[in-house]
Design a binder for these strands. Structure first.
Length: 713
DNA sequence: TACATCAGATATTAG
DNA sequence: ATCTGATGTA
């Protein structure tokens, strides 16, 4: 397709976006305004204008969207597009780092640690330093370290700025953490970007090389970039200044990952002579849905402000459904799903969106009860499942023998008689000598380890060597097969009658399939590149829209997607907006943006549901509808008035608080009917009871809100 | 060393 | 309700 053909398929604003080729360009693209379309056509237009695809860099939010964009550009201008560079910040950086790892004291086969790996490592460091893990919570420390890395603050700098003893301790943990990663030739997610920035800052010739390579840079979802990502793009675009960013300040939802909304809000001040284009025509949603979404987002103060319009029909009004419990809510949603499905909407065009992953449980149960095929995206992430991580750990030590973390993970998995004592000695010795554990295993005879374990370790080592030799140049799938065979993994680990185990085996099979796919696509592939690709893969990347399964995911995962029908469930104050973010206006505004993202995923049908009670730690708490629902004009709803129950908390019963004792534990519960109290916990406001329902089900309830009446035995 | 059992803490979102 | 880590037992 030529330039004219490309432009012919766009509206005026979109055309304009294509034709600004040089200099900084800010595209403010509202929800559903054809953003992806504009970006792909703009890239095609650049290439059609004679720009070499090799000089184009496009940064996307997920690997999946990079892949899709590549396909679409290719269908517009053909095979030439293969020479572009496209990917997420993390994947692009990991490719750059592979080339230059030596300059930073790593080798190109470095391993990438995910969140869990990092936290495990921090846990270990904290216990090695004999620090109390109550004060130094590993997850919290990980967040602090991540933040420091994103701001390029070294442990030494942090130490200098510390104003409390705990901060000094954290500086030490941070220092140890970096040391350990380097010793293991490993990087965490934050390193991928911050080390690339360091590389470009430190080596002007490398910076110049990439500036000349990536003469045209495009960044999607710019509202969710953070400081270090800004820095990276700034460094890469320094010479040519052809930087095009696309985003929507109303959809900035990743501040917890350091996303800085200021990046987009002040882009035109940072980059002089910025051309700004607003895409305000919405092609996705019906007028009613758009109105609802707009009336929510106008309540935010921190925004550039834009008005979306649509030529589409008004469409159906929104559905608002109230339930008593999360189970009832989930069931009602499934009934609605059946209705839409009967009206001809394929299940694959529907999505249920929720604020927290934990909410997927009741939805999953209801889907099973109603026999509705479903797919849950995210939650327990595929590559974080134990069975997958273990096999990946075997691959890791083949690719990067210095990776002690992976070695320790599998040295006794499946169990082979190498216990705590033996691994501790190995670890201590390796640390002492500044070597990796695999390095010192040949000297094991000289260590203070019981003979039985020495034998086991030696057996493990010779197995490792066998796997290493047999898998040379055999492809990833074959390598995994050899690992499974040599370790007798499936037989030793799993019992084929246990349904949990069956699904674990299925996951391993899925891993084999994906490895096979990798082998086919990458003729010159190897374990190292496979691992780097895989460790940056997410569930949304793996997700394939299938026509006959309903999609369930968090609102965050749904970013960038669209569906014919959307169900936003759990729209309660304290859940959405989440209780943790009620403390400040900034945070509530982000929750509101998140709600806005949820609503704007819908094309034709939008249902919002909430429940009067909320499950928490197994107990049931009262709750009220989300404040965001109240920001939607009543007239946009099918059903009104929309609060069946009163808008306040259920009244607290004064007299009927049930106290159980050993000789009388039967009661009548207002919701569950006849129950047996098995045990009670806590006191006063926190008193909870573990009850046995006549259905055989057991659960926790909060006594404070349960009107219970004593019954004779 | 391996496995069972129990107490205690604990869930926001995610590359 | 579920997960983790500590303790006890074979």
């Amino acid at each position: 397709m030529d330039k004219i053909g490309i432009l012919a398929q766009l509206n005026e604003k979109q055309k304009e976006a294509c034709q600004v080729i040089e200099g900084p360009l800010l595209i403010l693209a509202g929800a559903g305004s054809g953003k992806t379309r504009t970006i792909t056509y703009r890239i095609a237009y650049l290439i059609a204008s004679g720009i070499n695809p090799i000089n184009i860099l496009a940064v996307t939010f997920t690997n999946k969207s990079a892949e899709e964009m590549k396909q679409r550009v290719q269908s517009l201008i053909g095979e030439r597009s293969n020479f572009m560079t496209m990917g997420t910040f993390h994947s692009i950086c990991s490719r750059i780092l592979r080339k230059h790892a030596e300059l930073l004291g790593f080798t190109s086969n470095y391993a990438i640690y995910d969140q869990k790996d990092s936290i495990n490592l921090i846990k270990k460091i904290i216990s090695n330093l004999d620090l109390p893990k109550e004060t130094f919570k590993p997850k919290h420390i990980k967040n602090i370290i991540g933040k420091l890395k994103r701001e390029l603050i070294s442990p030494e700098q942090y130490e200098k700025s510390a104003y409390s003893p705990n901060m000094l301790k954290i500086a030490i943990i941070y220092r140890e953490y970096i040391k350990y990663l380097k010793l293991n030739n490993s990087m965490d997610f934050d390193d991928l970007i911050s080390k690339t920035v360091l590389l470009l800052e430190k080596y002007p010739e490398i910076k110049l090389y990439y500036n000349n390579k990536f003469k045209f840079i495009l960044v999607d979802e710019y509202q969710d970039t953070n400081k270090i990502q800004f820095e990276l793009i700034n460094l890469l675009s320094d010479v040519h200044n052809n930087i095009c960013v696309v985003g929507d300040d109303d959809q900035s939802i990743y501040s917890f990952r350091g996303a800085n909304i200021e990046n987009i809000l002040s882009f035109d001040q940072v980059y002089k002579n910025t051309k700004t284009i607003r895409l305000e025509q919405n092609y996705r949603s019906t007028k009613n849905i758009l109105k609802a979404a707009s009336s929510v987002i106008v309540n935010n103060v921190e925004r550039k402000g834009k008005t979306l319009f649509s030529d589409w029909k008004n469409g159906e009004k929104l559905n608002l459904i109230e339930s008593y419990s999360s189970m009832e809510e989930a069931s009602t949603v499934m009934e609605e799903v059946k209705k839409l499905s009967k009206r001809g909407v394929p299940l694959g065009n529907l999505a249920i969106l929720y604020r927290t992953n934990a909410q997927s449980r009741s939805l999953e149960m209801a889907a099973q009860k109603f026999q509705i095929p479903y797919i849950i995206v995210g939650n327990v992430k595929f590559f974080e499942r134990v069975e997958i991580k273990n096999i990946i750990a075997y691959l890791n030590i083949l690719a990067n023998p210095k990776d002690n973390m992976s070695l320790l993970r599998i040295i006794n998995v499946p169990v082979r008689g190498i216990g705590k004592k033996a691994t501790q000695t190995l670890e201590f010795e390796a640390h002492h000598k500044g070597k990796s554990i695999l390095d010192i295993i040949p000297d094991i005879a000289s260590l203070d380890i019981p003979l039985r374990s020495i034998k086991a370790v030696n057996n493990f080592y010779s197995m490792y060597i066998r796997i290493k030799n047999n898998s040379k140049n055999k492809g990833v799938r074959k390598t995994i097969e050899i690992i499974l065979e040599e370790t007798d993994y499936i037989d030793k680990m799993y019992n084929k009658t246990d349904p949990e185990d069956v699904s674990r085996i299925e996951n391993i099979e899925e891993l084999l399939n994906s490895a096979n796919e990798y082998d086919i696509i990458n003729e010159n592939g190897n374990i190292e590149t496979y691992l780097q690709q895989v460790s940056l893969f997410t569930d949304i990347d793996r997700w394939k829209e299938v026509s006959d399964r309903i999609n369930m995911m968090t609102v965050h995962s749904a970013k960038g997607l669209e569906f014919t029908g959307i169900f936003v469930v759990g729209a309660m104050d304290g859940l959405f907006p989440h209780i943790i973010n009620l403390e400040s206006n900034d945070k509530i505004e982000e929750e509101r943006r998140l709600f806005y993202v949820a609503l704007t995923r819908a094309k034709e049908y939008l249902t919002i549901t909430y429940s009067r009670t909320r499950d928490f730690h197994g107990s049931i708490n009262p709750s009220i509808p989300s404040r965001f629902i109240k920001e939607i004009p009543e007239t946009l709803f099918k059903n009104k008035p929309y609060f069946k129950y009163s808008n306040s908390l259920p009244e607290e019963p004064k007299d009927n608080i049930f106290e159980t004792n050993s000789d009388n534990n039967l009661a009548i519960h207002p919701v569950f009917g006849k129950i047996r109290v098995i045990k009670t916990l806590g006191n006063g406001d926190q008193k909870r009871a573990y009850i046995h329902l006549t259905t055989g089900e057991k659960k926790w309830i909060l006594l404070k809100y349960a009107k219970l009446t004593r019954m004779e035995k």
